[in-house]
Design a protein around this nucleic acid. Structure first.
Lengths: 235, 235
DNA sequence: GAATTGTGAATCGTTGACAATCCATATTTT
DNA sequence: AAAATATGGATTGTCAACGATTCACAATTC
């Protein structure tokens, strides 16, 4: 076909492979996770449709997908609202995330290669260096990269999708600043314990180290006592 | 086919509390998981809309939600198809399910009460009895009830939702008969190991027992070599 | 006869319009 | 004046219709 001509990676090409509602989905997801809108904020169909230059149909379809993924709440005859994550919800999500991340490490321990191990060690070193200079804004992305590298290397895309979904939902729990807040030196010590278990090819130890690490992260976040705590009725 | 158009049984009142697309979602989900349709089967918008007596709008919204949950595949300008689960996909799902179910047991071990323990023991006894009579059709629902009881008792609805989603997706992998196929006496022995760990309030042991149990279930299913094995391009 | 091209029916993607519902404000009632 | 009730505007839920794309099958070409 036109393997020689592909000068348009822009919107036209995207529209060929993905339907409109999928594009709208990604855009609204960006808006939600961007954090500019407050929690419990209303998502106006007409306003969003006009903003993207489409009709309300694709927007409504995107809403349903966002609802299925737990990012928005649908109230009949009222519309779509950014999902509100209570403290109780956040605890639940952290516990599942601990189990999923632990499972990723367990699976990775059975198949990790030298290259991946080297990359993880390199990240450890960089995080240690940044921790010394106490540069929080530099530590944060490295921390994410470390966890993502593990999840993406465990050879299970289903697990990876679930993991990143959980992380997205936690983003809705406005309690950041705490992730960096309490002691990230100890955090990196926990990272080292994980990598050591991976290096030892010890699945059980890898799970335990990873599970404990996320649980400590939960404690660090919850300690600060931020976020909404009201508990709406279950669906 | 069905000249008597009454596919929605008295659930018109549900429409008050839930939107139409949510009802359609549940109906299509039932159709998919019912198993009457083969894998990779096309879901016709117009046909489904007429079957439910609505227009195509709500049906398309339901499709998006089903797609987000991994039950249908959306192909641009082609429509919605029942998601095809390859053997490779099934392995991934089993591994995640093992980790999630293990996490449920781990959490439950920290909070289980006498009543729940008694219920689980009662189920164990019933499954043993059924195993003696080799009544597979009676064993299967008890097996499901056992796992569901654990997941629903661990006090984490987020985890429960993810778990049942994974189970649903595994249903798309047409390889049943195998779940019962190879030795369900050993399966119940594994159940006993889980309950023992729960009784001991030993989280780590509970996880290991549960994880190993699902992994053995995976082996039993995969051993039979059924299911589609073609591997479409990764997303 | 096999491959290619052309045609038409069927289906999908999107839109704009209409009815039903909800919300905020103004009006009435006690 | 406070509570209850009406009212108008805005928003959602659903539908039917239009253009665009795909698929199956017939006609044509080599």
């Amino acid at each position: 076909m036109n393997s020689n001509t592909e000068p348009l990676p822009s919107e036209l090409e995207v529209l060929r492979s993905s339907s409109m509602s999928q594009v709208i989905y990604k855009e609204i997801e960006k808006i939600i996770l961007g954090g500019t809108l407050g929690p419990d904020e209303k998502l106006n169909e007409k306003a969003l449709a006009e903003r993207f230059g489409v009709s309300r149909g694709p927007v409504r379809e995107a809403f349903q997908a966002l609802h299925a993924r737990g990012l928005v709440e649908m109230i009949p005859n009222r519309g779509a609202f950014i999902q509100r994550i209570t403290k109780h919800d956040a605890v639940e999500i952290y516990d599942v995330r601990a189990g999923v991340f632990g499972t990723a490490c367990r699976l990775l321990a059975e198949r990790i290669d030298k290259a991946t191990l080297a990359e993880l060690n390199a990240l450890l070193a960089r995080m240690d260096a940044v921790a010394l200079s106490r540069d929080l804004d530099s530590y944060y992305p490295l921390n994410i990269e470390f966890h993502s590298k593990i999840v993406n290397s465990c050879g299970n895309s289903t697990l990876a999708n679930i993991y990143f979904d959980l992380v997205s939902r936690l983003h809705l729990f406005r309690a950041r600043g705490l992730v960096h807040g309490g002691g990230f030196e100890s955090s990196n010590a926990e990272h080292r314990a994980i990598v050591k278990a991976l290096d030892d090819r010890d699945p059980a130890a890898a799970f335990e180290a990873a599970y404990a690490h996320v649980q400590r992260g939960k404690s660090r976040v919850m300690m600060s006592g931020e976020g909404p705590q009201s508990k709406p009725s279950a669906t």
